[in-house]
């Protein structure tokens, strides 16, 4: 669906890091380095971004 606001495990806000993360990875940067740079250091928070599947586009036409 849409990126969760916070990490499920520790509660750190990760929603705001998703768009910079996605844009930088699409521009060819290495995901691990981008995550370090964005200050997302714990593996619970890192998996939130790494494993996210953005399905909001699919359900957008419906309301």
């Amino acid at each position: 669906m849409i990126i969760p606001v916070r990490c499920f495990t520790c509660g750190k806000v990760i929603g705001s890091a998703y768009e910079p993360f996605r844009n930088r990875v699409e521009n060819g940067e290495e995901p691990a380095k981008v995550l370090d740079d964005l200050g997302i250091t714990r593996y619970c928070c890192r998996r939130m971004l790494l494993t996210h599947v953005d399905l909001i586009e699919e359900i957008k036409p419906f309301s």
Binding site: S16, K60, P61
Partner: peptide
Amino acid sequence: YSGDLEPINGPEFRPRDELIPIVELSEGQ
């Protein structure tokens, strides 16, 4: 985004993290 929230009590209460997506809207929503 979270930055679209408008505080009525004063601008100091605007969320500092302005990039958190809340929802995406399409045409007509």
